[in-house]
Design a protein around this nucleic acid. Structure first.
Lengths: 260, 260
DNA sequence: TGGAGGGTTGACGCAGCGTCAGGGTCAAGC
DNA sequence: GCTTGACCCTGACGCTGCGTCAACCCTCCA
């Protein structure tokens, strides 16, 4: 007759595990000796080893009992189910690995490589780190809403960077936002002029600023408020644009009438 | 300003998950409106998406906060750690899959294929299912103690089966144990004679019944008590063997003197 | 005779939420 | 003005498979 410690040692498990199996009814409680100690027969060792074998193979404890007294056919079927479950788990983890492999750089968080390349291009053009981060957050929002479409937007954005006005705009904005103190910066006027001109140009070509159809409005609203949250001077810029006949920020649209 | 439901929907998570992130301090609690509802800014959406991206990649929540404000180098190092952890997990699961693949048949539980083959051979020779199961449980005990050695035992056991006395013994034992009623079976005498003869023969060749060295005694004791537990008539057989000058059951040894 | 090294029950802790329970709130339709 | 359904709130337990105290009892050996 074995004590719980001897039993556990023989089967290569912890005492706590054995007690756990008793608690959930997986291994029957043995008789007790005079002092209340559990005393095990040899058959218990065999049972415990079978349990551990299944548990080590990834069978959830809740199903081991059924499997142990299943007929060969039912057993095989159960094995099948467990196996396909394991396969799914492995698949999930491998997807995770692939995903974190993409996280090599900080920017890559939740963004496809095309967008990363675009952000790096902005840096090359002298756009401030602060603005690039703002852009990045915007793209994160877009990527969350349209994971597939977002890559289609990128070529158009790259093309825009060929226009010196666009580059100039980014630089002016960089300067404005990098100055923490300036509440009423005269450069805001220049930025507004640039943006209005670009909007006019895009409108003439029959596109809007992002080059995509309407989809839904939520992401654009979010992008706008995100910008305002990032720097309240954006609100001032939006007002200046409105004076120039353009509404919105990320996706601008011509206003019906110039306000009074 | 978004409600928690809108926030969650945009980021593709459940409301409960968002509240959980608040609870553990991963996502800061936003302001509340007049009726106590949480109201989120656009920046919260970006934060939440970043969190989900890392969590989906298998980063434990407890480490996401550190990673989000880590520098590029520290971030990369953390990614490395996560990745190797994932690799280990995958390895573990694949081991599990290999193991359960071995569990195709009921016998295979915790036993190497050589032992399975031996058990099948017993069945072919007309050994009863009941006895085979007893043998199997014994091998499970041996395999747990000596996972590597147990395969070495098998060739010797196969060889023994070439001896017609051994086959005869197994069949007699099968018959005895399959009769539920017989308490004092005359065939027990025949079995004891056969066993004593085989022991004598083995002793003459300088081997003991299992063909292995002493190792430790626990498994053998367990095997003996296992047999007695399986059928109390084993005890009677052990007594008969003792009369014939042999002690033990699975591993028999010559007694110094025939008992008075 | 005392101390080490077993054993006993009971309880909390872990990760990441799911899922009630038992409320209050909001927008819309009657 | 009232109902209805869809949200929101907090609080709490449940899941998996044990690890790890705590507080106590039993046994064996020097």
């Amino acid at each position: 007759m074995l004590t719980i410690g001897q039993l556990a040692a023989y089967a290569g498990v912890t005492v706590r595990a054995v007690r756990h199996y008793h608690q959930i009814g997986l291994l029957p409680e043995p008789e007790r000796d005079a002092s209340g100690y559990r005393r095990y027969r040899a058959a218990a060792v065999v049972s415990l080893i079978k349990i551990r074998t299944l548990a080590d193979a990834g069978v959830p404890l809740s199903r081991i009992a059924q499997m142990l007294d299943a007929e060969a056919a039912a057993f095989a079927e159960a094995v099948q189910r467990i196996d396909s479950h394991l396969r799914d788990e492995i698949e999930r983890l491998e997807t995770s690995r692939r995903q974190i492999a993409q996280l090599a750089a900080g920017d890559a968080l939740a963004l496809p490589p095309e967008v990363i390349a675009y952000l790096d291009r902005l840096r090359e053009l002298g756009v401030s780190e602060r603005m690039v981060e703002g852009e990045r957050d915007g793209w994160i929002l877009l990527a969350a809403r349209w994971p597939d479409r977002v890559r289609e937007f990128i070529p158009g954005k790259f093309a825009q960077l060929d226009d010196p006005h666009v580059v100039r705009l980014y630089r002016v904005l960089s300067e404005i936002f990098d100055d923490d103190d300036a509440g009423d910066d005269p450069r805001l006027e220049e930025a507004a002029d640039l943006m209005a001109g670009l909007a006019e140009q895009a409108y003439a070509c029959g596109e809007n600023s992002l080059g995509e159809e309407a989809y839904d409005d939520l992401p654009h609203d979010l992008l706008d408020t995100l910008a305002v949250e990032a720097d309240p001077r954006v609100e001032r810029l939006v007002a200046l644009l409105r004076e120039r006949g353009w509404g919105g920020w990320n996706r601008m649209e011509r206003l019906a009438e110039r306000p009074g």
